[in-house]
Amino acid sequence: MKGTNIGEFEELVLLTVAALMDEAYSVAVCDELSTHTGRTVKLGVVHAVLNRLEEKGLVKSQLGEATRARGGKRKRFYQLTIPGKNALVNAKEMRDQLWDRIPSLAWKNL
């Protein structure tokens, strides 16, 4: 079913959007991801992912106020939706369950 499964990068973007709260627009998401993951994240990729997430209904967006920066263009702010929150929670739960299945004994042998 569409929207229940999300890819790794999609999850990262979703988490960042959630973390940035009211300041989540594409450039900010991009910067945040770059600092936290340490990889160079291209704006084009983030833009495409945000667009896809919105299509899936995991985020919603609205245009902000016009400012003099950015050539007078408005920012598009993203917000997590309920399905988006569910998808994140699902993903985390799924991982936690898998984590829990690993006996601590096994770790030591690696």
Binding site: V27, H47, R70, G71, K73, R74, K75
Partner: peptide, 15 residues
């Protein structure tokens, strides 16, 4: 629908 914030983003990067 996408043009405005896309142009804005590009502009921000440009600056």
């Amino acid at each position: 629908r996408l043009a405005e914030d896309l142009l804005g983003d590009l502009n921000e990067y440009f600056e």
